[in-house]
Computed example of a mutant assay.
Amino acid sequence: MTFKRVMKFLGLLFGFLAGVTAVIVAWFTRRMVAPARQPLWATPSEMGLAFENVQFPAKDGVRLSGWFIPAAGSERGGASIILVHGWAWNRLGDAAGDLLADLSGMTPVELLRLAHALHYEGYHVLMFDLRNHGESAAQPPVTFGLTEANDLLGAIAYMETRPEVNAKRLGVIGFSMGANALLYALPQTIAVCAAIAVQPTTISSFAEAYATDLMGLPGRVILPLVEAAYTAISGVRLTALQPAFAAAGAGATPVLFIQCKEDPWGSMEDANRLAAATPLGEGPLYVDGSHHYQGYQYLVENPRIAVAYFEQYF
Rank of each mutant, 00 (worst) to 15 (best):
V192Q: 12
N150D: 13
A115F: 01
M215P: 08
G178W: 01
F51W: 11
P303H: 10
H133W: 00
H119A: 14
A232F: 07
V20F: 12
E227N: 12
V307L: 15
V192Y: 06
P254F: 02
E52V: 10
L103Y: 13
S136W: 00
A26M: 14
R37N: 11
V287P: 03
V300Y: 09
G122T: 14
G86D: 07
F56D: 03
Y296D: 11
D263L: 03
P70N: 04
N132H: 05
A79G: 08
E121C: 10
L217F: 13
T2A: 15
F310T: 01
P218N: 03
G77N: 05
L285I: 11
G11L: 06
A138D: 15
L217V: 12
F51S: 03
A117N: 07
Q312Y: 01
T201H: 11
A42T: 09
Y296N: 08
G77S: 02
L153R: 01
D151E: 08
V255D: 07
A271G: 02
Y293A: 00
G15H: 11
S45G: 09
E262S: 15
P200K: 00
R76E: 05
V221Y: 09
P243Y: 08
V33N: 07
Y313C: 01
Q139V: 02
I69D: 04
M1L: 05
S205L: 06
A138I: 03
E46P: 01
L12Y: 09
N132S: 06
P44W: 08
L170F: 06
F314C: 06
T21G: 12
F314E: 05
G249F: 02
C193I: 12
A18C: 11
E160R: 13
N53E: 14
T43G: 14
P264T: 09
G178C: 05
P284N: 07
S74F: 04
L17V: 06
R31Q: 15
E262L: 12
N180I: 01
A228K: 14
F128L: 03
Y309V: 07
L186D: 03
P163C: 04
I173M: 13
P108K: 04
Y120W: 15
G78F: 06
A250Y: 10
F68H: 04
W87V: 04
L64T: 03
E110P: 09
P254V: 04
S234P: 00
T189E: 03
A157M: 00
G171D: 11
L64G: 10
L186R: 10
S290P: 09
M47T: 06
F310G: 08
